[in-house]
Simulated scan of single mutants.
Amino acid sequence: MVHVVIFAGGVGARMKSLDIPKQFINVDGKPIIIRTLENFATHPDVDDIVISCLADKIEYMWELIAQYKVAKVTSIVPGGENGHGSIHNGLVEVQRFSSPEDIVLICDGVRPLISHQLISDCIETATKYETAVPVTPSIDSVLQSEDGETCCKSLPRKQMYITQAPQGYTMRKIMHAHDEAERLGITNPISSSELLIELGETVHIFKGERDNIKVTTPEDLQFLRSRYYYKSFKNFAKEELKYGL
């Protein structure tokens, strides 16, 4: 089986929209998190979805799921103190009804442009290797700085990759990593893949998609809105041509 954990426990501080967490911002008529969920809910290989959400937004999340008729959501659990904690809470819920060989896809709630192909590639890679991390090659030069003011090392661009989500794992692999993190006192790894790497594991990467952005900043939101505006404009123009307008 294929399970999905969507973690949406953040408040969106970098979005500068303090009145509403970024995952609930509307874009072209739908909240960002609903668009993210729909990509998984409509994928034929996904069996169920667990959401790890801000505790005071759980009731609102259920209302949105009902309003937009999002299928396959089985549980909504409270988020943790950080992303890692929210993922952990979601995984613990999935563990109740999964087997160690099942695949779990872990994704933040603000990736509304995920394609079905990327989800399929993630499932296939995780099934084969137990780990699956989508990446895109860095197209920019990368400098390393210790203090944010001076640089003394340039990293080889051809070896640099940008990680994305969803990241896929067998339940056996990712739960072992979370158990080890708790034992070793690792409380805030940046992502699941970096947790595994910190624990000495090797993760398998595969080709991601540049459009698969994580909506984090106002610039990301502007890009997303422009994408949906362009899509709406194309559909409108197609209808005009169809009827000879």
Rank of each mutant, 00 (worst) to 15 (best):
Y230P: 00
E149N: 11
E130C: 09
Y169G: 00
S138N: 11
I25Q: 05
K153D: 12
G90A: 09
E38P: 00
P166F: 01
E149C: 06
Y129N: 13
K30I: 04
I51V: 12
R172F: 14
E81W: 14
E149T: 13
Q144C: 10
C122I: 08
I114V: 15
L37G: 01
G168C: 06
G244I: 10
I174S: 03
I33K: 00
H88N: 11
M171Y: 12
E38I: 02
R157A: 06
F223Q: 05
Y161C: 04
K153M: 15
Q159Y: 04
R96N: 12
I87N: 00
K30R: 11
D140L: 14
E81I: 15
L118E: 08
E239I: 12
L195E: 03
G185E: 07
K207W: 05
I76S: 05
I205A: 02
K207M: 10
Y230M: 11
H84F: 15
K16Q: 15
G109A: 11
K153R: 15
L221N: 04
I190L: 13
S154N: 09
L241M: 12
V11Y: 09
C152G: 15
F7L: 07
I162K: 13
T125Q: 03
T170H: 06
C122T: 14
W62V: 14
R14S: 14
F206S: 00
D121E: 12
I119H: 01
V215P: 02
T163V: 15
V135R: 06
P44K: 03
G10I: 11
K231G: 00
V50A: 06
L64Y: 07
